[in-house]
Amino acid sequence: MHIIIWIIAGALLPWFPFSWIFNRLLVSAPGAWARALAVLVLPQLGLLLLLKSGAWMSLGQEMPQTLRALALFTAILYAYRAAGTRDVQIWARLMATSGLSLTWLLVGLLPRYWDVQFFVLAWSIPAALMLLWAGILTQRTGGSYLGLTGGFARVMPRLSVLMSLTALAATATPVFPNFFALLQAMASLPISWMPLLLLVLLLWGWTVGRLLQDLLFGIYRGEPVDDLSVGGTWLGGLTLGVFALVGLFWGGIWIIN
């Protein structure tokens, strides 16, 4: 019974190879809003399944080495793969998978349900926002691939700013909550395992650098497009601002734990 629970949980709160199913589910969601909702809800369902079935706590304080290795492998694999794509939607999915897989490092460590829930949200929220921006980009330009036109900073400055900030938020940049979530994940590891997690951090730096380079720089070579509305920009900015503020306050919880 437990094996089935682990497999279903692995498909919702992704770890390799079941992370493939998680990504497939996101791809099959109809439209940007559905995908954003899915990336918010699916990991929470996986977490709920683990906690309610008792599978989470059954592992106790001592995490099995294989589970730890699998979680880190998933994070590294998906971060590396994200560097190889220039499509915002795919990038957001792969990065979400990479970040969410780190939740498995906290098995048995966080006693309060809402602590783990918040850890998961720290990766889901920027991924959901990025999927929304990818949807808007698709609406305006016919796709979210950045390799063809480039130079969006000049033609869509508002959307570019939001996308840049969200990409930074998705890759554990301070003062967004993921940064502190990553600190928490680091604290959960023995020192000899830490370099692997730091490799994830390095790969995220690489992927976000490549994304921003494709997104912002160069002369735009596409059809004239409309930027995001001012209201939409304020809403997006406010969401990211609140997200960052929560990060600032939540940062301390890691120290208490």
Partner: peptide
Amino acid sequence: TDRPAAGRYAFWTQITYR
């Protein structure tokens, strides 16, 4: 942002810092 070279070299700096 109009100059791809500016982005490229900013990226070099960013990744070395990381």
